[in-house]
Design a protein around this nucleic acid. Structure first.
Lengths: 230, 230
DNA sequence: CGCTGTGAAGATTTTCACAGCG
DNA sequence: CGCTGTGAAAATCTTCACAGCG
């Protein structure tokens, strides 16, 4: 290896940037679908709902993939972001808890256009086990370990009631799964090295309520001072 | 200003703190359910999955509700956080898009124990309109404006396919709704003063994939340098 | 000349560490 | 003495503003 290898980056993309890359990716895919070949930071930022300085700074962490005076080549940037996010390989996902939410997740076809494959659906309810959902047989939760092993599951999705979530999480971890997406309204306890992300409806509603209340409080009274109603 | 009025706070709770208050609230409710009357910052922080310094700093923005040498009175703190979040009043919620996800949301009983009331379910599909979901009749999307007015809807939840989301959002805004929770994978365009929060499955998966890839990359190779596998 | 990439400034968030109240 | 509340330091994130490449 004499010449400069593609050296994509010197490891260390800020977390805030990582959280936005999927948004950029989706915006780029929309642009591509509309036949756009090239886009400026301004244009892409608009489509992604951020300002252009932030977009440029974010992309600068991946490398220098734009052309001055022109902008970014849509297809190339899609590839670079996908690669950075790890979407050029396939991740095997298991969903536990096949209620309405689990079904919604299972049927949610385009997981950001490729990168994820739903490998198994699991549930504890005998009435649900055996059903076919999204072309997959729902298996009993008891086979979790076996399924993780045989399907090479690397991401576990928990869509169970709150009471069962910690147990399922522990079994995932025990079975070697180190990425967990939790929809149950509980704080999961997992060892270091396991990555848990949480999606929680009622938290989001409560945050909305907070801002709504603040808007209502200050309405008309507070705009004379520079009160922000973000 | 001679006497000190109860003066709960001088407006201006950091956004990061607001986002954590619902988590504390839930942890407190769990503690209360278990009969705990008092908890230290350490104890509550553990239950909420944050460190105690952060917890104390967060609570300090609400006021001085702890007792030195003792901790926090669970019930009192629940009340204070609820009030701050605006959960002492009821917020009327309308859900648009009654697919699996919409149903899951509609049936999601305890919205953080009170504070939110699902006032209406709306859908565009004639086969879905008229169904009863979670004891509510699904109404046609055409009645959105009428429903917002008559039910006093202040929070709109969008659980439609991506293609319909912007249209629904615009109608919500037009009808006077200023808080929107969006589950559709698109960036919504709304005027200033409207608060949109987004919940997006595939973004969460992609963030997990990023970290999983990083862990895989560096496995065993990178731990000699201080590589973080957070 | 237009637009990217980026130092530097500014803002926000987290963590530290301890004074001081109960 | 234990634990809260908080200034101050450190870390992270955002925005500015412009040098300089294509």
């Amino acid at each position: 290896m004499t010449s400069r290898p593609p050296r994509p980056r010197e490891r260390g993309i800020p977390e805030a940037t990582v959280a936005r890359l999927p948004v950029y990716l989706r915006a780029l895919q929309a642009l591509q679908g509309r036949g756009t070949a090239t886009v400026s930071s301004e244009g892409l930022a608009g489509a992604a709902g951020v300002n252009s300085a932030k977009l440029r700074k974010d992309l600068s962490h991946l490398g220098s993939y734009g052309t001055r005076g022109v902008g970014y080549e849509v297809e190339y940037l899609i590839y670079q972001i996908s690669r950075e996010l790890g979407l050029t390989q396939d991740w095997s996902v298991a969903i536990v808890g096949i209620g309405n939410l689990g079904r919604a997740l299972a049927n949610y076809g385009g997981f950001g256009t490729r990168g994820f494959r739903i490998a198994a659906l699991l549930d504890a309810d005998p009435d649900v086990v055996g059903l076919t959902v999204a072309s997959l047989d729902v298996r009993h939760i008891d086979s979790l370990e076996e399924v993780v092993r045989s399907k090479g599951v690397s991401i576990g999705v928990i869509a169970t009631p709150a009471g069962s979530a910690q147990g399922v999480a522990s079994r995932f971890v025990e079975a070697g799964v180190t990425s967990i997406l939790n929809f149950a309204p509980v704080v999961l306890n997992v060892p270091d090295g396991v990555d848990v992300r949480k999606v929680d409806l009622s938290i989001e509603l409560q945050i909305l309520a907070f801002h709504a209340q603040r808007r209502a409080d200050g309405d008309g009274q507070a705009e004379r001072m520079g009160l922000e109603v973000t």
